[in-house]
Write a protein that binds this DNA or RNA. Structure first.
Lengths: 347, 347
DNA sequence: TTGAAAGCGCTAACAA
DNA sequence: TTGTTAGCGCTTTCAA
C-alpha cells in the first residue's frame, strides 16, 4: 500500500472511496433493493438475509449517501431556522431548544443569522428553499416578513417569537401584552406609582404589544405613564436608554423589554451610582440565564422556551401524537411567567 | 383553478411544482446542457442564447435543486461545526464569525450543539459525514476527540479552539498559556502579590495551559501561588467557585479562565459585599461582549475571534489568495490581547 | 456554440 | 421474499 499525497496535505494511506449500496449488495449476495429494505425497514426481509446484509454494512462501514436520498425522496430531514442574531442569549436558547426537539424527531436543524438585516434574512430563506429543507422557523425582525418563496415551494413555515400574527403563516409566540401587564402589576404591587418603560425600537412600524400592555395596565390602575425610552434590543441599546433616562430623570420603577437591554441599563445605573432596587426597581423580559447572574439579579418575565420550541416543531412536522391530527395554520400563544429576583425589590 | 387541500392544512391554490432545468430549456428553446452552462458559467454561450435562458429562468422562478447538484458534484457547499454549547456567548461569537466567513465563500454552516456530551459530539460528527459536508470545525471538550470518521471519509477538519495540538488534525487555537501570563502580569503590575485562579474543570485530563501560564508567571516573579478553584465553564461554576473562595479566604486578585465564570463569581462576590476591584481584583478570559456590561466591567483576555474564524475556514477551503497554496495539516496559534476595564483596578 | 446522453446513489413500483 | 429497473435533477464528456 503506497501513501499518496491527498489534497488535504500530508501523505496518508489512500482513502478508500466510501462504500455504496451496490458494494453491500454484492458482498451480501443480494440485490440492491434488499439492502434498501434492510436499511429503511420498509419491507419484510428474511432474518437470515437481513443478518448477512447487516454484516456487510458493518464490514464495509457503509453509510447511505444523503444527497442521493434527498434527491430521490425530496426530503433532507433538515429544518431551517432564521434568527436575528444567535449571539443574543434569548435566540441562542430558543435555537438550542428547537434543535433538541428536532433531533428527537430525526431532523437536523440549520440555523442562520440574519444579523437583523432584511436582505440577509431573505437570502437565508431562499437558501433554505434551495436546499430543500422540510420546514422553516422564522424569527423575523420584520413585521410582515416575506414568506412567498416558502409558500411557493410549499414548505411548512412557522413564525416563531413574532410579536403579532400574520395571516397565512402558522405562528408560535409569547403573549407579550400579558407579560408587560404582569411586570407592571408586580411593580405596582411593590408600591411604585411612576413606572417607566424601556422598549426595543426595531420591531418595525407596528406597536410592540409590550408597550400597549404597559400603558393599559397603568391606565387600569389609574397611574400616570412614566418616561418611555426606545432603543435597540442590545446591551448597548439598554445602556444608551439608561443614559438618557439618567439625564431626563429616572422614575421609581422601570419595565425593560429584554434582559439584554436591562443588563446594559444596569451598567448605566451603576456608573451613575443609582441603587437598584432602592432608587429604581426593575423588571425585564425574556428569562435568559444572564438575568440570574447580573447584579442585582433581574426579575424577569420568562418565556416558556421549551414548550414553544416543541409547539413550533409540531407545527411543522406532524405532532408526535398521531391522534392529534395534522395541524392546519395555527396560531399558538404562550403565557409568560414572572420570575422574582432582587431587582424589583423582592427579597 | 380549484383550491386543493395541501398536506400543510388550509386550502390554497395548488402549488405549482418547482420548475426544473428541463422546463427552462424547453421555454428557452435550448438543450438542458446550455442551461447548465449559463447557470454555472462553465462554458461560452452566445449572448443571445444566454439572454433567452436567463429570461426563462426569471419567468419560471427556476432555482437549481441542490440535492441533485450535491449528488452529481459530491459537494454540498456545506460546512459543519460542532460546539459544546452555542448558548455560551463565546461559542456563539465564534460560530457567528465562522458562519460569516463561510458565507463569503458561498458555504452554508451547519452548527450543532454537543451539550458537552461525548456521545452527542460523535453523533453530530457522523451526521456531518453522512450529509457529505465539505469540512468540519470541531470545538471539542474532549482532549483527543474521535476524528476517525472524518479522516476515513477524507473530510477536511480543523480543531477549533482546542487547548492543545492533536497530531494529524489541523488546528486553530489561541495561546492560552500566554493569555494567562498576560493576566497575571497585569495583576502583578497593579501591585498584587497574592493572585489566585479559577479554572475550568471540564478540559479532561490534560492540564489547561492557562493553569500552567498562571503558575509559571507567578514563579517567574517570585510570587507564591494564590488559592486555586476548579469548576465548570459556566456562570454557575464561577458562582460556586466564588462561594468556596469566600469561605476559605479570598486572595487580593484572581485570574478567571472564562468570562462566564467571572460573571458568576461577580455575583457571589456582590452577595458577600466584597468590592471589586478594591477587595479583589479580577481579570478574566474570552473577551465576550458580556464582560463589558457586567458590574464592574471585566478586564478580560480577548481571543481574536474574527482572525481565528478566517484561519479556520482557510484551513478547510483553499485560502482566498490562490498563491498561498493549499494548506497542509497546519497548527495555527493566535495571540490573545488584554482588554483593560475596571475589574482589575484600571481606571 | 450547442446537444445527446451517461451517470451520481438511492428508492420503490412492479414482476417474479 | 427478492430482484429488475426507472427515474429523482443535475453536470459534463463527447460529438456535431
Amino acid at each position: 500500500m503506497t501513501a499518496v499525497a491527498t489534497p488535504h496535505g500530508a501523505a496518508k494511506p489512500p482513502a478508500k472511496p466510501a462504500a455504496k449500496r451496490s458494494d453491500v449488495a454484492r458482498l451480501a449476495g443480494v440485490s440492491t433493493a434488499v439492502v434498501s429494505y434492510v436499511v429503511n425497514g420498509t419491507k419484510n426481509v428474511s432474518p437470515e438475509t437481513e443478518r448477512r446484509v447487516r454484516e456487510a454494512i458493518a464490514l464495509l462501514g457503509y453509510r447511505p449517501n444523503s444527497a442521493a436520498r434527498a434527491l430521490r425522496l425530496g426530503s433532507n430531514e433538515m429544518l431551517g431556522m432564521v434568527v436575528p442574531d444567535a449571539r443574543n442569549p434569548y435566540f441562542a436558547m430558543l435555537a438550542h431548544a428547537v434543535e433538541t426537539v428536532a433531533a428527537e424527531r430525526g431532523y437536523t436543524l440549520l440555523t442562520a443569522n440574519a444579523d437583523g438585516l432584511l436582505e440577509t434574512e431573505r437570502r437565508h430563506v431562499e437558501r433554505f428553499v434551495d436546499r430543500g429543507v422540510d420546514g422553516v422557523f422564522l424569527c423575523s425582525t420584520i413585521v410582515e416578513p416575506d414568506v412567498r418563496p416558502l409558500v411557493d415551494a410549499d414548505i411548512p413555515t412557522v413564525l416563531l417569537n413574532h410579536s403579532v400574527e400574520v395571516a397565512g403563516v402558522a405562528s408560535v409566540r409569547i403573549d407579550l401584552w400579558e407579560g408587560a401587564r404582569l411586570a407592571v402589576e408586580h411593580l405596582a404591587e411593590h408600591g411604585h406609582e411612576r413606572i417607566g418603560l424601556v422598549i426595543g425600537s426595531n420591531t418595525g412600524h407596528v406597536l410592540d404589544p409590550r408597550e400597549t400592555g404597559w400603558r393599559q395596565e397603568l391606565a387600569r390602575r389609574g397611574l400616570a405613564e412614566g418616561p418611555l425610552e426606545r432603543d435597540i434590543f442590545t446591551m448597548r441599546g439598554g445602556y444608551d436608554a439608561g443614559r438618557r433616562l439618567l439625564a431626563t430623570g429616572l422614575p421609581s420603577a422601570l419595565f425593560v423589554s429584554s434582559d439584554r437591554q436591562a443588563i446594559g441599563l444596569l451598567r448605566a445605573l451603576h456608573e451613575a451610582g443609582v441603587r437598584v432596587p432602592d432608587d429604581v426597581a426593575l423588571v425585564s423580559f425574556d428569562g435568559s440565564e444572564d438575568a440570574a447572574y447580573s447584579w442585582p439579579p433581574l426579575s424577569t418575565v420568562a418565556a416558556p422556551i421549551a414548550d414553544m420550541a416543541r409547539a413550533a416543531v409540531d407545527a411543522i412536522l406532524a405532532p408526535a401524537d398521531p391522534d392529534a391530527g395534522r395541524p392546519g395554520i395555527r396560531h399558538e400563544v404562550f403565557a409568560p411567567a414572572l420570575v422574582r429576583r432582587a431587582s424589583c425589590g423582592c427579597p
